[in-house]
Design a protein around this nucleic acid. Sequence first.
DNA 1: TCTAGATAAATCGCACACGATCTAATCGTG
DNA 2: CACGATTAGATCGTGTGCGATTTATCTAGA
Lengths: 167, 167
Amino acid sequence: MNNAQPSASVPAAASADTPPAPVGPFADYVCFSIYAAGLAFNRLYKHVLDRFGLTYPQYLVLVALRARDDRTVGELCELLFLESNTLTPLLKRLEAAGLVTRTRDKADERVVRIGLSAQGRTLAADIACVPADMVAAAGTSEQDLAELPQLIRTLDSLAETLRKALP
Amino acid sequence: MNNAQPSASVPAAASADTPPAPVGPFADYVCFSIYAAGLAFNRLYKHVLDRFGLTYPQYLVLVALRARDDRTVGELCELLFLESNTLTPLLKRLEAAGLVTRTRDKADERVVRIGLSAQGRTLAADIACVPADMVAAAGTSEQDLAELPQLIRTLDSLAETLRKALP
DNA sequence: TCTAGATAAATCGCACACGATCTAATCGTG
DNA sequence: CACGATTAGATCGTGTGCGATTTATCTAGA
């Protein structure tokens, strides 16, 4: 009811101060904040990852493979919360770039295993500086940094709730 | 240093418990949490918005126009943090669907003004139930709800920092 | 054994999202 | 008034993302 709505919650901020949602500030506004933060992160990542020729999800795949190699497509889907119809073409692009290998599993021909090529392993090591680059590029304030652990916990919990709500 | 990392932080969770980022848990993991939460929200929105035939950004445009009509493309870009190259085709789709009108501004022929059609106004009123639908579909817990105002503040502040870091 | 279901990826169509670039219109300064 | 600079949208190409479907393989049960 009486929560001081920060002015950045866009759909409401349009007209002066009418909270139009009958259920309170949730749903619309937390969605939008996540959406907008995702856009902003993606844009900054584009710039930071540009010199590696990688997109953000491609970067995530390399980080996952650096931690452990020879993963199946399904494992990567689960890790990144993506569907195979998104990952398959992405992985083919990484293969075309010479960064990963895609081989049918001998034991189960349905499964495709993804491994790092030599070049991919080198790049996976090189991108270890990306988190630091992001912090530097963002010029993150101490205040923001202090709130991040709680932010992550809340986001992960929320995302888990949403994922469980789907068929 | 010693923050109990929830297991959902994917790129690290791959190998047992090695925090690979030299700068601490930021950058990589908060990005990923936002990314994953955005994916989850988007998927749930797809299902909720399906009966209206709208996507999430299309829904945002209608909500913005419901609050105030006859906006310029640039105003909508600013509100939604999108570029014209994203909004222009989206608005053309909404126009093709008969929901909005696109007219050149008489005073400044460079400007295109977006208005709601009669059908668009009806739909904009109908989608007022979407926030409640989302809450219902998500089965949001009381605990999550309590943390949302702080979550929104942190996300908006973070997004603002990121946006200011770009050219 | 042989086939009905289940499973893993892949394919298809559509809609964002962005960087780079283009066009048309307006503005600013001489 | 003129003309370079700016501004508002639009266009183009690439890369996600997802729902629906398809293909190939594997597994269970009669």
